[in-house]
Amino acid sequence: MSPGSHTRRRITAIAVLTVALGIAMLAGVGFGAVSVTPADSLGAIGRMLTGAPKLPGDAVIVDIRLPRVVLAALVGSCLASAGVLYQALFRNPLADPYILGMSAGAGLGAVIALTLTAGATALRFGLVPAGAFVGAILTIIVVVRLASLRGVLDVTSLLLAGVALSYVLAALSSFIMVFFRESMTSVVFWMMGGLTGASWPYVRMVAPMLVLGLAVPLFATREMNILLLGEERAAELGVDVERFKRVLLTAGSLLVAGAVSVSGLIGFVGLMTPHMVRLVLGPDHRVLLPASAIGGAVVMVLADLAARTVLAPVELPVGIVTALVGGPFFVWLLVRRNGHR
């Protein structure tokens, strides 16, 4: 395989996934209480972008369906990209923001922010993501410290520390909600893990976090590959390992915070997506990271579509859909891993 064919493969993979994302988003916009044809959807989006006069049917597409689908794509992208970063960082295919406890940490941060800003909606758009970011980054630092108490950072300790801390942080979130009953409704609503409240301001809040969190790692995919050889080897090959780890941790926390602050706790997307991409395209981060970022968007848009339509008119929180699919997937991974030994 020459470098040229490598680049072609990368471009093909990204192109195919982008087309898939387009189709998934059109489906996401099209299905619902009122069906919309792809042509109508594209027309409405075109009119929105060009500022042409709107047709009567456009409102449901542009103001309700589209922000929700776009938000689902952004959240899925955040979670899957964060999964790739953490799996590289810990050289462990079971790492995922949800399992590592970061989602719960971001959740607690967001709950505190929500409680503090009760009634002040304007403040929320700034404070909630900030709280989630601080919560995520503090959690991952504590989890890593706990897992390496015995000197080496082994897989089992990492997962145990993540799960244990998840419970503690979730309990703290519940505690705060019980204490501040007046803000409870909005918090519970948010905690369920869903995209029900999706709107353009949410989109505008997450998008920059995704861009920021993904931009730096996209320039460092070669280092991520080398990190898979082990930290010492990476240092021998010229990677400034300590600095690079901090960069990945920060970028990952930003991505998790972005997803959590708009959609609550949604599990397993960060675990499943990189895995599926790796199975098809291999472990090379130059393909894996961008492909997972798009793939996560596809997964999330489809999961949200299922959440809205499977039991319509009842709408499931999307976290339930991802957990129902992702839980068994996680077990399958564990079994497969043990089978290799």
Partner: peptide
Amino acid sequence: SFSAREFVLMGRH
């Protein structure tokens, strides 16, 4: 599952 060639090329980093 990097190929041996990709593995060797990492040395060019």
